[in-house]
Every structure is written in C-alpha cells, then in structure tokens.
Simulated assay, not measured.
Amino acid sequence: MAVTLTPAAADRVRSYLAETPGGIGLRFGVRKSGCTGFAYVVDIAKAEGPDDSVFETDGVAVRVDAASLPQVDGTEIDFVSQGLNQQFVFRNPRVSAECGCGESFATS
C-alpha cells in the first residue's frame, strides 16, 4: 500500500515547501496520544530519516518512519476548505475507533 495525497493536498504541501528553506517533503506519522491511542503528526521534512518509507504523489514526497507506517499505511491525505476553515483530512482505512473529540484514533 502507500500514503497518498489528493491534488488539493499536494498543492497545499507544495506551497508550504516553497516557504520552507530546506524542505524535502511532508513528514507524516503518529504519536501516542489521547484516550484512543494515536494522533497524527504532520510537518515539513527537512532531512531523510534512516527508516523512512517515501511515497510520492504529483512530485511531492511523503516520508513515513517505520514505527508509524503500520498505523498510517493506506491513508489518503486531503486538504479541505469549508467556509473560512481549512484543514488536512486523513482518510485512513486502518482506523477502527476514534475518540469523541477527534483527538486520537486506534487501528486494527
């Protein structure tokens, strides 16, 4: 499988990369958090990690560390604008439960 970006997400990441000297792609992963287990971590990657898996969509690299990959493999990252709100949305087929506040998730 892979981690993919929609065209809207790829465009948004490209704009962030243009503003970030030394940016080489998007770093996507998880950290332990909340009542359910994991929270997404998204940042601009400035260096290659020794255990990164790299997935490319429309020329934009998404880097995922080995510890995060089992929880995010298969995720589609979108960028959605609704009224004045803009945010990344994660469509992760591995999610089996989410907390009520949307802070964290569990995978099966």
Rank of each mutant, 00 (worst) to 15 (best):
M1N: 08
M1R: 10
A2S: 15
T4C: 06
T4Q: 14
L5M: 10
T6E: 11
P7F: 04
A8W: 02
A8Y: 02
A9T: 07
A9K: 02
A10C: 07
D11K: 04
D11H: 03
D11S: 12
R14C: 00
R14I: 02
S15Q: 10
S15T: 14
S15K: 08
A18Q: 10
A18L: 12
E19F: 03
E19D: 13
G23I: 05
G23V: 02
I24P: 00
I24W: 00
I24D: 00
G25N: 00
G25A: 07
G25S: 08
L26V: 02
R27C: 00
R27L: 07
F28A: 04
F28H: 09
G29V: 05
V30F: 03
V30M: 05
V30R: 00
R31I: 12
K32N: 13
K32T: 12
K32V: 13
K32A: 15
K32C: 14
G34I: 09
C35Y: 10
T36E: 14
T36N: 14
F38Q: 07
A39H: 06
Y40D: 08
V41K: 05
V41F: 02
V42M: 14
V42P: 01
V42W: 01
D43I: 01
I44Y: 01
I44T: 02
I44D: 00
A45L: 01
K46D: 02
K46L: 12
K46N: 11
A47P: 01
A47C: 04
E48V: 13
E48I: 12
G49A: 13
D52E: 08
D52L: 05
D52I: 09
D52W: 01
D52P: 01
S53K: 10
V54F: 03
V54C: 01
E56F: 00
T57S: 09
G59A: 03
G59T: 02
V60D: 07
V62S: 04
V62C: 07
V62W: 01
V62K: 01
R63N: 00
V64C: 04
D65F: 03
D65Q: 05
D65A: 02
D65C: 09
A66D: 15
A67M: 10
S68H: 09
S68R: 03
D73Q: 07
D73G: 08
D73F: 04
D73R: 08
T75N: 10
E76A: 12
I77T: 04
F79H: 15
F79K: 01
F79T: 04
V80Q: 11
S81N: 12
S81K: 08
G83V: 02
G83A: 05
G83T: 14
L84A: 10
L84K: 05
N85Q: 06
Q86G: 06
Q86E: 15
Q87N: 11
F88A: 11
F90S: 15
F90E: 07
N92S: 13
P93I: 13
R94S: 11
R94D: 13
S96Y: 05
A97N: 09
A97S: 08
E98Y: 12
E98T: 06
C99G: 14
C99Q: 05
G100C: 08
G100T: 08
G100L: 13
G100F: 11
G102D: 13
G102T: 09
E103S: 09
E103V: 11
E103Y: 05
S104C: 14
S104W: 08
A106G: 13
A106E: 09
A106S: 14
A106V: 10
A106F: 06
T107C: 15
S108E: 07
